[in-house]
Design a protein around this nucleic acid. Structure first.
Length: 441
RNA sequence: GGAGAGGUGGCAGAGUGGUUGAUUGCGUCGGUUUCGAAAACCGAUUUGGCUGAAAGGUCAACGGGGGUUCGAAUCCCUCCCUCUCCGCCA
């Protein structure tokens, strides 16, 4: 969520940032108008409430005093508020009750307006960072680096669905059990899946300083709102029936972001670095008919997620660090990749800046997004109420970051397709061999 | 699934419906003392909104929401969470 103060005070900058993301800025004017209304209501409500509080505070002692001497006059606070000296407590009660009802009514109106503001702001994306390149579509993304050598073949490399057909790659079985987009692996491929997950977790926990977490795979609506998936991306999510109303997580970012919700971390405890393996569930609602073959785009997949909570001062640096942690996975697996910096028009809802890591997959002959490393500035922290505190005891909203490190399907695609041999075998990269337990698939 | 107990400030733990945003202890920070430290003593120590240049003023919050009342941490309803016991089952 954006800072309402920023919207008030730097309206032009906010609009410029949103416009760069192709967002209609009319919502900002609507919010500002409601905000003015809210502040007016709130100020008047509080003035009345303050007067009422003073009167109520004096009321008790008056009652006490009257027990001893019924002739004790009403206290000044009461007389002031009511504009007359009440004859007796019952008369005062009646008048106070009416005033109290008025204040409550004003409070209700103010809350209703505040609610409208929030409902609008929940649909407004984060502002792009000053570093994020301007652009309209994904065509304007910028390649920041390329790593590795695309493999050369003396034969035509197969796409993964042909390469491992009949070797434990059973999309039809997944389809029969659950529907299309639910992969089913048997034997070597299932083991490869597990090996990748273990490889990622071991790397991040042993060498990159992340703390491994095991999280729930189903979460509440509120948890998804903290990290920004709800309310806007409701259609993208699987949800259990109304008895529980839980959502299946689309990424471990969701539970991890809420770990420190509603709390304050001392600066010296940051950065907090978490990683977690979870399955991820996505409807891929807007992507029907796209990338339907093999495991290019699926409804359920495994991912090891990296998530960082840090201070506003450190977050830019942490973004580079986190991205490097993801890149190291690919480098150790010898998978050629490129780092793309997403432009303002293509960046995700909550992100201020984002790098996509795309792996080269020789069989399908394309780069495939395998990781998205984003810095969210205080966007998620404001929703989740994650704060940090410095030595001078100043609290401010934390910054959050996350990135895949990595998701298995596209990593596996690249690994299989790039390392295939003429006889249809697949070479397992050296770094993965201890986890997989063999040099060949 | 059934029965019960409980959710208060960083933690522990009080709180007859009326100066209780909240006693107290611990912790933390600052000070006095000391060559230094410990101990002792003194002081400070929740968060957020509105307003203000600032000082300050003011409102809100005792798990969430609603209600009763002139007035709620305290009474009522409801939801959530934690713990204990029973049942059931990985």
């Amino acid at each position: 969520m954006l800072d309402i103060k920023l919207i008030r005070e730097q309206t032009a900058d906010v609009k410029r940032g949103l416009a760069a993301r192709n967002v209609d800025t009319a919502v900002i004017d609507e919010v500002l108008q409601l905000d003015a209304q809210w502040r007016d209501l709130k100020t008047r409500e509080e003035e009345r409430q303050a007067a009422l509080n003073r009167a109520n505070k004096a009321f008790g002692p008056w009652m006490g005093a009257r027990k001893k001497n019924p002739a004790v006059p009403a206290p000044q606070e009461l007389t002031e508020l009511l504009g007359e000296t009440p004859a007796d407590p019952d008369q005062a009660k009646a008048r106070l009750g009416a005033l109290s009802a008025d204040v409550q009514e004003m409070a209700r109106r103010a809350d209703a307006v505040l609610n409208q503001i929030e409902q609008k702001l929940l649909f407004v994306p984060n502002l792009p960072s000053r570093h994020t390149p301007l652009g309209k579509t994904e065509a304007d993304n910028i390649v920041r680096k390329e790593w590795g050598q695309k493999p050369a073949f003396a034969f035509t490399p197969k796409a993964h669905w042909d390469l491992v057909a009949g070797k434990g790659f059973d999309m039809e079985i997944g389809g029969r059990i659950s529907g299309s987009g639910f992969p089913f692996f048997r034997g070597k491929l299932a083991r490869l899946e597990r090996a990748l997950v273990n490889f990622f977790l071991d790397l991040h926990t042993r060498e990159h300083g992340y703390t491994e977490c095991w999280t729930p795979f189903m979460v509440r609506q509120e948890t998804l709102q903290n990290s920004g998936q709800l309310p806007k991306f409701h259609e993208e999510m699987y949800r259990t029936d109304e008895r529980d109303g839980l959502y299946l997580i689309p990424t471990a970012e969701v539970p991890l972001t809420s770990v420190h919700a509603d709390s304050i971390l001392p600066d010296e405890q940051t950065p907090v670095r978490y990683c977690a393996f979870t399955p991820c569930f996505r409807r891929e609602a807007g992507a029907a008919g796209k990338d339907t073959r093999g495991i290019l785009r699926v409804h359920q997949f495994s991912k090891v997620e990296l998530m960082v909570v840090t201070t506003p001062e450190q977050s830019e640096q942490e973004h580079e660090t986190l991205t490097r942690c993801a890149e190291r996975c690919l480098e150790l697996l010898e998978i050629p990749y490129r780092r793309l910096e997403l432009c303002t028009g293509d960046i995700g809802f909550g992100a201020a800046r984002c790098y996509d890591l795309e792996v080269w997959a020789a069989g399908v002959g394309k780069y495939l997004e395998a990781s998205s490393c984003s810095v969210f500035t205080d966007f998620q922290a404001r929703r989740a109420k994650i704060r940090v505190r410095d030595k001078e005891k100043r609290t401010r909203l934390a910054h959050t970051l996350n990135g895949s490190g990595l998701a298995t399907p596209r990593t596996m695609i690249a690994l299989l397709e790039n390392n295939q041999t003429a006889d249809g075998e697949v070479r397992i990269p050296k770094a993965l061999q201890p986890h997989y337990g063999a040099e060949r698939l």
